[in-house]
Simulated scan of single mutants.
Amino acid sequence: MTTAIATCTAFEGLRRIASGALPDVALAVRALLERGEQAPVLIFDDVTSRAVEFDLRGTPEEILARLATHESGDPSTQAADTTEDDTSPRGRGRPKLGVVAREVTLLPRHWDWLNGQSGGASVALRKLVDAARSASEDKDRKRAVQEAVYRFMTALAGNLPGYEDATRALYADDRSRFEDIVAAWPTDVRDHTLRLAANVFVTLA
């Protein structure tokens, strides 16, 4: 796991078997598999709906120890995330901002405009990027939660009645239509889908 996962949900076929913190779900899935259940088990990140995989070999203690290692992360990889060498000299008064120097190709008129801005080209570019990020934040958040709903629906509801219509309603921001279709699905799939989708429609409110 490359990013921290707060909670996840496991399904055996269309039945939810566990939801919560990774260790709790991992042990619940292990217990299910030990009973010899045959239905496929899928585990989803509760935020992104991406598949979560556990190494369920060994004792419960060994499983939990491996999860703890993943969650804490590897200090050697954390050290590699720095964007500026700690030993590099800095000019007087120059704050360490984690600045990364990269080539930017612009037309002469662009450079002329940037160089005429207060603080120079670098400061102006940072302000432009920050403004663009702020303007697209809501749109990006909406797209992310829609993709989470779609990812879960595709994995578990792709063969259920109304799946394609529900997908269209999701991306058309038609909450009423979406909820009407999903209401006919198996209880656990319905409830999880609606919980995810609530984040979409709250974002749109």
Rank of each mutant, 00 (worst) to 15 (best):
Q146Y: 03
G116R: 15
D45A: 02
T3H: 09
S122H: 12
T9M: 02
R90F: 11
Q117N: 02
H70T: 14
A79P: 00
D173T: 06
R151A: 15
S118H: 12
T2W: 00
A101C: 01
W111C: 05
A183S: 15
A198Y: 14
G20H: 04
L128G: 04
D81F: 12
A51E: 13
C8A: 08
V25P: 12
D85K: 05
D174F: 07
F44W: 05
L42T: 15
E12M: 13
R141A: 12
V104R: 05
T3L: 07
E71L: 10
A39M: 08
L22E: 09
V123Q: 10
S134K: 11
L67C: 06
K142I: 14
F201H: 04
L107K: 13
E37G: 11
A21H: 05
L160D: 05
R66C: 07
P40R: 00
D24A: 14
P108R: 00
P95G: 01
I63D: 06
T2E: 11
L42N: 13
A205K: 15
T69A: 15
K96D: 05
T3E: 12
V149K: 11
R102P: 00
L170S: 12
A132T: 07
Y163D: 02
D86S: 04
V129R: 05
S136C: 03
D45V: 03
R190M: 07
C8F: 01
A80T: 10
R90D: 00
R175C: 14
T167V: 12
T154Y: 10
R35T: 14
A6G: 07
T154S: 13
I5G: 07
V189R: 06
F54I: 01
L125S: 01
L204H: 01
H192L: 01
A205E: 15
R90N: 00
A68S: 14
E61Y: 03
G119L: 03
M1D: 13
P161M: 02
D180K: 14
I63S: 08
N199T: 12
A144S: 09
